[in-house]
Amino acid sequence: MSEASDTVTNISEEMRAAIGTVLGTRTSYPISASDIRKWAIAVYFPETPPERFVGAGGPDAPLTAPEEFNPFAWAAPGKKPKRPDVSAAFLENQLGITPPPLNTVLNGGTVVEYGVPMMEGDVITATNRLDNYTEKQGKRGLLLFSSMKDEWVNQRGEMVKRTTSTVIRL
């Protein structure tokens, strides 16, 4: 039996009890036509984006945002500039609980479910939760998978997207 498999679990009772906890909520400013155009120009650079992302916009023909557009990137009500926590304990630091004794963080990927599109003028509210902790034995030892689910709705309460992001720690 390897040394790694002797570790029964890195998921403490405190961590298990935190599953489902809301990590944060945020609401965007209304999405502007300029926000959409700039995003599209950046991701299609150096070619011209499709007209629906860069047209005149306005109330009669509001622009549609690209699916992966982020309305929270810069300013949002109540958002204060801060350095991101890039430590292996970032999640438990946010929860205010004791982190697992692991030092390496890998990106485990992202799963997105899309609902209605984001349009010029929309106000998006996001709720981010700790979705789950799971473990799996890997070649480098016991791997801790931590998933967070971020759900976005628009000002009418319609689901815009649900994103599940997973980080792997070892």
Binding site: E67, N107, G109, V111, V112, E113, Y114
Partner: peptide
């Protein structure tokens, strides 16, 4: 998007770097 045009709608998407 370039392939599907405006008749298509992306329902879900996954990525692993």
């Amino acid at each position: 998007r370039d392939w599907m045009g405006e008749k298509g709608r992306i329902r879900n998407f996954t990525i692993q770097w």
